[in-house]
Every structure is written in structure tokens, then in C-alpha cells.
């Protein structure tokens, strides 16, 4: 093609033609993609709407300070009394125990994986088993904790639920923390070694601080997942209608309360279940927002 051919074709209009096939096709595809995005959001929005409508009515400070009430008829003057303070505390307690177990184990395991065993067969196999562990149904974790702790201590307990949730959180924490540690540039490690830092001084002084935002994100995701799990807690922590702070005694949790109360015919219990579900979702939301906020602030 010579340059003259170009000068001839330059006379064509540069305006977009609305009716041409490629413009129409492009617009239709954009429309379909937009519609699919909206449809995907519907379940989430509907869920939040339902939770708010049904749970918001009972929301108030007494939810967190009072015990679950006995069943009342809607006509009873006491219909709107009672709360789930014990279950709220119980959820904090079981998740707290789970975090106290899984965070140190998970972070140290990921330090080992990324700093000492990177690209070895051992690391590969540990990663493989971590992935397997993350795919194990949560009820199996519950059975494990039931067999290992409930049967040996002869009591349902927050401790047993904590262990089940810890096993559940572990893969999430190990995977995200390992990723965060491995993404620390090797130049930073060399700089620390070049200054005469030992292996552990390099890891604690440079690598770990640089990876902290990523590690916190992983921990928050693990916590958020553990807080909402029901299957592993219903036959490890069981339930408790009263206040309990002893980790070796049966303990109420929010998820178990939703499970127990939602299916009853009592209207005031059903309402408490809605409110507990709303609080649970709020907890998960807060954990996610916190982790995002920490990650972004550090960058």
C-alpha cells in the first residue's frame, strides 16, 4: 500500500455510527453485563433488607445485657423483653479462644513456609494439606473437637468450640499470611542481611512489619468466618440459657441461638433469632471493613 492510498481513505468520516453492527453489539453486551451484575447483587441486598426489616425492631442495648426470655405470646406485656447477652459474650469467647490458638500457630507456620522452607518439597506438601484442610466441611471440625475435647473432658465447652473454630481459621490465616510474607521484596531481606542482621532479626525487624497489613487482613477474614459458623459450635459449645464465662462449661453463641430459636413456633424467640442474625452479619461486616481500613492505611 502506498502513501497515496492512505490519503484517499482519510476522507472517510470519523463519526461514530449508532446503527453499525459493532456499535450495537458493543452496547448490547455492556447492557447484558450490567444486568448480570445487578442480578448477582440481588441476593445480598435482599438478605440485608430482610435482616434489617425483621431484626431492627428488637435492636437495642437490652439485647446485649439480658438473657433469653421464656416464650411469650405477642399479647403479653413482656413480649419485647429479654436479649442474648450471654450468646454475644459466648461468641466473643469462642472466637477469642480460636484466635488465641490459631493466630500464633498460623503466623509462625507461615513464617516457616515463606522464610525457611520456601520452594522446598516440605513447603509444597504443607501447602497442599493446608488447602485440603480449608476444604474440609466445618461440621467435620466440630466432630473432631467433639471427639478430642468434649468426650475427654466429659463436658460441652467454649474451649471445644474454640478448638474447632481454630482448626477452621488456620488455613485462611496460613494462606494469607504466607502470601503477605512472600510478597515482601527480597531486596529488603538483603538490605537487612547486609547490615549484619541475623535471620530472626531480619524476619522480626523487617519482613514481619512489612507484611503486617496482609497478615491482619487474613486474621480478620478468619475471625469473620469463624464468628458465623454454626455446625462446629452446636455440638461442641452446645448452648446455655444463662450467663457463663467458664471456658470449660457449655456456652451459648449467636449462631447456635439463631439455629435454636429460628425454628421454634414462639414469635418472640423468632424475633430474637432475626436480631442475632443481624448482629452476626454486622460483626462480619465490621471485621471486613477494619481489615480493609488497616491495609489501606499502611500503604
Amino acid at each position: 500500500m502506498t502513501s497515496q492510498d492512505f490519503s484517499l481513505s482519510s476522507g472517510r468520516s470519523l463519526k461514530r455510527s449508532q446503527m453499525s453492527f459493532k456499535t450495537l453489539f458493543s452496547n448490547v453486551m455492556t447492557g447484558i453485563a450490567f444486568a448480570c451484575a445487578i442480578i448477582a447483587l440481588i441476593p445480598l441486598v435482599a438478605l440485608l433488607y430482610y435482616l434489617l426489616i425483621n431484626g431492627f425492631a428488637r435492636l437495642g442495648p437490652q439485647l446485649f445485657t439480658q438473657l433469653p426470655p421464656p416464650p411469650y405470646q405477642p399479647t403479653s406485656p413482656q413480649f419485647n423483653t429479654g436479649g442474648f447477652g450471654n450468646a454475644f459474650i459466648g461468641t466473643l469467647m469462642t472466637v477469642g479462644i480460636a484466635s488465641a490458638i490459631s493466630i500464633p500457630f498460623g503466623v509462625f507456620a507461615s513464617i516457616f513456609l515463606s522464610e525457611f522452607a520456601r520452594d522446598t518439597k516440605l513447603a509444597d506438601s504443607i501447602n497442599f494439606f493446608t488447602n485440603v484442610l480449608s476444604g474440609v466441611p466445618s461440621i467435620v471440625m466440630g466432630v473432631f473437637a467433639y471427639g478430642a475435647i468434649v468426650l475427654t473432658t466429659k463436658s460441652y465447652s467454649a474451649m471445644a468450640a474454640g478448638v474447632a473454630l481454630a482448626v477452621l481459621m488456620l488455613p485462611t490465616i496460613v494462606r494469607t499470611a504466607t502470601e503477605a510474607l512472600e510478597s515482601v521484596p527480597k531486596e529488603l531481606r538483603q538490605a537487612a542481611f547486609g547490615l549484619g542482621a541475623t535471620n530472626y532479626q531480619t524476619i522480626l525487624g523487617v519482613v514481619l512489619p512489612a507484611a503486617i497489613p496482609g497478615i491482619i487482613t487474613g486474621v480478620m477474614l478468619g475471625v469473620a468466618r469463624a464468628a458465623g459458623e454454626t455446625a462446629p459450635v452446636i455440638f461442641t459449645a452446645l448452648f446455655n440459657n444463662f450467663w457463663n464465662l467458664d471456658p470449660w462449661k457449655p456456652t451459648a453463641t449467636l449462631s447456635a441461638l439463631v439455629f435454636n430459636f429460628a425454628g421454634t413456633p414462639y414469635k418472640n424467640w423468632q424475633q430474637l433469632a432475626w436480631s442475632a442474625a443481624l448482629v452476626l452479619v454486622a460483626l462480619v461486616l465490621i471485621a471486613n471493613i477494619l481489615s480493609r481500613w488497616i491495609t489501606q492505611r499502611k500503604r
Binding site: 521484596p185 531486596e187 529488603l188 538490605a191 549484619g196
Partner: peptide
């Protein structure tokens, strides 16, 4: 050895 023999690298690598 590395405490007595310092090093500066190709890519500036200050700690964060």
C-alpha cells in the same frame, strides 16, 4: 562479616 563490610544495592531498598 556483614557488620564490618557494608553493602549498597543496585535498587534503592530502604525499609518501609
Amino acid at each position: 562479616v556483614r557488620r564490618q563490610i557494608g553493602m549498597v544495592f543496585q535498587k534503592p531498598n530502604p525499609f518501609p
